[in-house]
Design a protein around this nucleic acid. Sequence first.
DNA 1: GCCAACGTTGGC
DNA 2: GCCAACGTTGGC
Length: 160
Amino acid sequence: MNRRRYWVLKTEPTNYSIDDLERDRKTPWSGVRSYMARNAMRDMMQMGDTVLIYHSSCDVPGIYGFGQVVSAPYGDPTQFDPESPYYDARADADKPIWQLVDIAFRSKLDEPITLLDLRARPGLKTLRILARGNRVSVTRVSEAEFRIIHAMAVKRGHKG
DNA sequence: GCCAACGTTGGC
DNA sequence: GCCAACGTTGGC
């Protein structure tokens, strides 16, 4: 049994939010077009891993809820769809360039853990998403970092 | 809207 | 394979 891993998934809520994930229950995490983020999903993610859903480019950036990796990596279908903004003409069906995993909704926080909250925690200084200029939308969270964030969620009345 | 800092591209 | 230039991200 492999050890659980933890991740932050960044998303712009105007594009896809924790509420969308709650409604859908499960979604292919499509549209990731960065090699570092793709490699993380393709090579490092495991079924059952926990993901933190982070809203960026919005009024209150921060963590809004929890999800779970529920598939192995597979080719992102949007790369083959000429109508999609994520279409990639270089990709063909038997040689996908972009990979994704399915993410299931687990829970939503009543109050988000804001970017300011995260920055205020000395134990989270190493959190990748807080690094200056970080742009990668899929980043690893250490177990120690996750424990701190989870405790912050519990403090907000979050169960589970 | 600004702009620092980045990840990616492409010329060499 | 290097690295400058570019376009994008994302907090403010």
